[in-house]
Write a protein that binds this DNA or RNA. Sequence first.
DNA 1: GCCTTGATTCCACAGACGTCGAAACAATGG
DNA 2: CCATTGTTTCGACGTCTGTGGAATCAAGGC
Lengths: 106, 106
Amino acid sequence: MNETECEPGSLSHEDAATYATWFKALADPMRVRLLNLLATERRAMTVGEIVGLLPIGQSTVSHHLRILAEVRFVLAERQGTSTRYEVNGACLECFPAAVRAIMGQP
Amino acid sequence: MNETECEPGSLSHEDAATYATWFKALADPMRVRLLNLLATERRAMTVGEIVGLLPIGQSTVSHHLRILAEVRFVLAERQGTSTRYEVNGACLECFPAAVRAIMGQP
DNA sequence: GCCTTGATTCCACAGACGTCGAAACAATGG
DNA sequence: CCATTGTTTCGACGTCTGTGGAATCAAGGC
């Protein structure tokens, strides 16, 4: 089982798996639109607000936001009876950095 | 059917769908490793060569390479009895550009 | 204490995906 | 023409995913 492989490429299995989860989080058109919406509005938004702007139901919006939050692309903050979601500006750094790491850029 | 929606966000449905297919192409750890392998070797490689370096079968490597080629992350060139795959350097430009477009960066 | 509003979780279902092995295809060498 | 080597396609299997609707939970307002 232990193959003592020499790890081809410059990435470890773990890094490759991590980056794959990042890409997977954006591998759906609705999640891309969702993130773009939050980024262009430049403010925290509630689920109900988003439901009125995208052609999907409440539970589906919540589902997508959870996926985006799991990889830290968006941040959630409970405020009273509603939850406010906003873009995590940090992913502007680490996301292109991951691309450079994969493509072996210096 | 025509809802005359005001297209929330800065991206059109079509652009969002296109970017989603790009991310989907990298939404698998093995494809990330595959692209990283081709990028770090900095040369065109054959399927058989790659099969010896990654823990998956020949047909699966071919399958993943086809997906990466469909979105132009890699380029394929048939050479005699074998096919040589190499990274498409152009995606170093357009990929971070897509991220900036989604995140509304100027 | 109830009721209302907003959000999440649960369930179900259709469709897509990753993987393998076998079969088919392509190109070269005997 | 047949054999060989490298690659792609096909069929199948189990798993994961996007979506909606119903139920549940959380926090205020009456």
